[in-house]
Lab assay of single mutants.
Amino acid sequence: YKIYPYDSLIVTNSISVKLPKDVDRTRLERHLSPEEFQEVFGMSIEEFDRLALWKRNDLKKKALLF
């Protein structure tokens, strides 16, 4: 996945969300650098992957990456 800054990946309720063209809309968190991922989620990507799907989705919603 290509890395993008968190600010360019957050999704708000506005209709005209302009995400970069090559971003996987269903896995926005994968486009964060490991350092920024840790900062946003408070855990590593590996720890995040071990969580239940509902928990990952809940965290993504709170981080505006859903």
Rank of each mutant, 00 (worst) to 15 (best):
F48C: 01
F66G: 06
K55W: 08
L32M: 04
K60Q: 02
Y6C: 02
D24A: 04
K18T: 15
R56W: 02
E39I: 15
D24S: 05
W54E: 12
F41H: 00
G42C: 10
K18W: 08
I15S: 15
V40T: 06
Y1D: 07
K62I: 09
S44N: 15
V23G: 02
I15R: 12
K55G: 04
H31G: 01
E46I: 14
S16C: 15
R27P: 01
F48Q: 00
M43D: 00
W54P: 10
D7H: 15
T12A: 11
Q38D: 11
E36A: 08
K62M: 10
D58S: 12
F66R: 04
I3D: 03
P20M: 05
F48R: 00
I10Q: 07
L64V: 04
I10V: 10
L28C: 02
D58M: 14
F41L: 05
S44W: 06
K18P: 14
L65R: 02
V40W: 04
S8I: 13
S16Q: 12
K21R: 11
R50Y: 08
S14A: 12
I45H: 08
F48S: 00
S14V: 11
L9E: 01
N57E: 09
A63I: 03
L19N: 05
S14E: 15
A63Y: 08
K21D: 15
Y1A: 10
I45W: 09
E36R: 03
I15Y: 06
Q38K: 12
R25M: 12
E47D: 11
G42P: 00
I45Q: 07
Q38F: 14
I45T: 07
V40G: 01
I15G: 15
F37W: 03
K18R: 12
I10C: 07
E35Y: 11
R30E: 02
H31A: 02
T12G: 13
L53V: 11
I15T: 15
G42M: 11
E36G: 05
S8K: 13
V11M: 11
E46V: 13
V17L: 08
L53Y: 09
Y4M: 04
K60P: 00
A52P: 15
F37S: 00
A63P: 00
S33I: 04
K2Y: 07
T12Y: 15
W54A: 11
I45G: 06
L59H: 04
F66M: 09
K21H: 14
K2G: 07
R50P: 03
D7W: 15
R56A: 06
V23Y: 02
K62R: 12
K55Q: 13
K18Q: 15
S16W: 08
P20Y: 04
E39N: 13
I15P: 14
L51H: 06
E39G: 11
F48A: 00
F37P: 00
R56T: 03
F37D: 00
P34N: 10
R25T: 10
F48H: 00
T12S: 13
S14L: 12
L19W: 09
V40Q: 06
S8T: 13
N57P: 00
L65P: 01
S33C: 07
F48N: 00
I10M: 09
E47Q: 12
N13W: 05
E29W: 02
K61F: 08
Y4V: 04
F37Y: 02
V40P: 00
A63E: 02
I45V: 09
K2P: 15
A63W: 04
L64E: 06
K62F: 06
F37V: 02
N13R: 09
S33V: 04
G42I: 05
F41R: 00
I10L: 08
L32F: 01
L19A: 06
V40L: 06
L51E: 05
T12P: 09
L59P: 00
L51M: 09
T26R: 11
D58Y: 14
W54S: 11
K60R: 07
Q38S: 12
V11I: 14
F66H: 08
K62T: 09
K2H: 10
G42D: 10
I15N: 15
L28H: 01
F41T: 00
A63N: 07
K18F: 08
A52G: 09
L32V: 03
P20G: 06
P34T: 14
F66D: 07
I3L: 06
K62S: 09
Y6D: 01
N13Y: 05
K2D: 08
E35Q: 13
E39V: 14
S16F: 13
N57I: 15
W54Q: 10
K18A: 14
A63R: 06
D58I: 13
F41A: 00
V17Y: 03
K21C: 14
E36S: 08
V11A: 08
Y4P: 02
R25P: 15
I10K: 15
K2R: 08
P5A: 08
K21W: 11
L59V: 03
K61E: 07
L64K: 14
V23W: 02
I15Q: 15
V17H: 14
Y1I: 14
K2A: 14
E35T: 11
D49A: 07
R30W: 03
D58Q: 13
G42Y: 08
I3K: 07
D22P: 03
K21V: 13
E36M: 05
K21Y: 12
H31P: 01
T12V: 11
K61I: 10
L28K: 03
E29L: 02
N57V: 13
S44T: 14
L19F: 11
E46N: 12
M43F: 05
P34F: 11
K61A: 08
R25V: 15
P34E: 12
L64T: 04
E29K: 01
D58K: 12
W54L: 08
R30F: 03
P20I: 04
K2L: 09
S44P: 14
A52I: 08
L59S: 03
P5S: 08
